[in-house]
């Protein structure tokens, strides 16, 4: 077990290094000279050269990388070109906003979708199954930003039940803050439930045709014991991995939801920075999300043996 945990941790290291290299390289590929950009149109060549030295841009690429990586390790992600704010606190505060939405949404979606998927598989080809799978396929085909707009239109503008624009932090006003989160979370739950129902159904079907399920039935166990005690745990592994992937993908793709509901989250920060060509912030966002994605998947991997003890032996 310890060996399993250690090997997974060690396996994540090269990925983390390569992810950092990729982020660093990506930013260096962006056309344009950051120094010139920071100084604006009126800058003199001498000023630009001075700025380049100050930013370390005159050094070789590997040197620049190690300086950058060293700073990142010390928590220094640089400063925003636009407003000179340090990047890390900015990214962290925005990340907190996005993360609360994503986490709650994925949790709710899993709670609804996984049992639904298992039931659909158990009653394969019945009307219940067809209805669940059909609904799931439709739900996952609806783009979140459109779904968000429709919900906004209906609950916000038509019915007036929920606030339409803006955001209040939960910390400052619990009830008000919650109200602002209802619609974005609902949007994500509806969409991701579609994905997860199908996933849970497929992996349960896979398990249900195995001999040990027949063996469990042949022992005289009730259907609920067969499904929940024997099938569910074994079928949950792939779904669990999927939940990890969804979590990461949502963190990366939440920009559209934040745009629809005007929420000041990480996604919106990243998009705004791309418009403003604020490289240090883009870089910080990319690195932060990619690393949290790696960590989420690592966490998912580490818990996987709970559902399938065989992975430890491999």
């Amino acid at each position: 077990m310890l060996r399993f945990i250690l090997s997974r941790l060690v396996m994540a290291l090269p990925t983390i290094v390569l992810v950092s290299v990729t982020v660093f390289a990506l930013i260096r590929f962006i056309p344009g000279d950051p120094a010139a950009l920071m100084l604006g149109d009126m800058a003199q060549p001498a000023q630009i050269a001075e700025m380049r030295t100050e930013l370390g841009l005159d050094k070789s690429m590997p040197q620049q990388f190690f300086i950058w990586a060293g700073n990142v390790l010390q928590g220094d992600f640089g400063k925003s070109i636009v407003n000179d704010e340090p990047v890390l606190p900015l990214v962290v505060s925005r990340f907190a906003v996005s993360a609360q939405i994503v986490l709650v949404a994925v949790l709710l979606a899993s709670l609804i979708a996984v049992p639904a998927g298992v039931i659909a598989a158990w009653r394969q080809n019945s009307l219940t199954d067809l209805a669940l799978v059909g609904t799931a396929t439709v739900l996952l085909s609806i783009p979140t930003f459109w779904l968000g707009l429709l919900l906004l239109l209906f609950f916000g503008l038509k019915l007036g039940w929920l606030p339409v624009l803006g955001y209040v932090s939960i910390g400052s006003n619990v009830v008000g803050g919650l109200l602002y989160l209802v619609l974005p979370i609902m949007t994500l739950v509806i969409h991701e439930a579609g994905v997860l129902i199908r996933m849970a159904r497929a992996s349960t079907l896979e398990v249900l045709r195995l001999d040990y399920i027949t063996h469990a039935r042949a022992k005289g166990l009730s259907e609920s014991a067969v499904i929940w005690r024997h099938a569910f745990k074994n079928a949950f592994g792939p779904t669990w991995t999927m939940i990890g992937l969804i979590l990461g993908n949502l963190l990366g793709g939440i920009a559209v939801i934040e745009t629809v509901f005007t929420i000041p989250g990480l996604g919106r920060l990243m998009v705004d920075s791309i418009f403003a060509r604020d490289y240090p912030v883009i870089q910080g966002c990319l690195l932060f999300v990619a690393l949290s994605y790696v960590l989420v998947n690592l966490f998912v991997d580490l818990l996987y043996p709970l559902f399938d003890p065989r992975v430890v032996a491999e």
């Binding site: 166990l221 559902f307 003890p309």
Partner: peptide
């Protein structure tokens, strides 16, 4: 269900898949 297992038992061909792996 009271018949299965208690009165009539069943053994399968494939020992690799007939026990719950988890």
């Amino acid at each position: 269900r009271s018949l299965r297992g208690a009165e009539i038992g069943l053994v399968f061909q494939e020992p690799m898949t007939s026990l719950n792996p988890s």
